[in-house]
Amino acid sequence: MSTLLEVSDVSVSFDGFKAINNLSIQIGDTELRAIIGPNGAGKTTFMDIVTGKTKPDEGYVIWGEKSSSLLDMSESQIAQAGIGRKFQKPTVFEEQTVRENITIALKNPRRPLDLLFSREAPNTENRVRAVSDDIGLTDALDQLSGALSHGQKQWLEIGMLLAQDPHLLLVDEPAAGMSETEREQTTDILVRAAKTRAVVVVEHDMEFVRRLNCRVTVLNQGSVLAEGSLDHVTKNQDVIDVYLGR
């Protein structure tokens, strides 16, 4: 398994508060990884750095086979390079239909003039179907996505990520606010997705992480506290201290 993403010695601070402190994480090219940690551990900031939203004060973020640095790229360039991100709050375009939402995300040329002058990309309909089947929203294709339930919106967002066909999926709390059955389906979608690409899941819910059955990284105060299988890290004394308090 070769390395897809390498974050090394990254630090970032806001007004003197160190949100990320000397953080190093490596993600392999077909890997499912869960990142857990208490509030303020730097999980979301980690994603911000990888997706280009926040620029770190120091450190490197190296991406892909060509080992290019992500720090010099804009958010859209990073996304085009193959990193997809799902936000904590479901953010779909509520005034557009499910079909439009997926179509926007489909991996196609993304420059304005491409969209204006070559309107129909090849077999768009089939690709949209494939995604909607995957997330179980084929029946709702022509509905406004604002009318979907909370869980459906989460799936639609994951579906949009899949439509992008990224090499790395960053998923922030996918199970928040979902019912039990919805959670199970979400797990399935993620596990399936991780077969062909790397998926990083940030989650609070231990049950959900357990079901993912993958390697777990524990963050605390902006750096890695422990890494390994869930059973391994839950036995780690530091992790127990952080979660249960001293």
């Binding site: 997706t51 939203k53 958010e75 859209s76 360039q77 996304a79 085009q80 997809g84 991100r85 936000f87 953010t91 375009f93 509520e94 005034e95 557009q96 439009e100 179509t103 926007i104 995300a105 993304r110 304005p112 969209l115 204006l116 309107r119 949009m160 992008q164």
Partner: peptide
């Protein structure tokens, strides 16, 4: 799709940016 992207920019600029636009 162009119009769809334009309206998406109006509704959530950050999201459409993370989609690679």
């Amino acid at each position: 799709k162009f119009g769809s992207v334009i309206r998406a920019i109006r509704d959530n600029e950050a999201r459409i940016r993370f989609l690679g636009y």
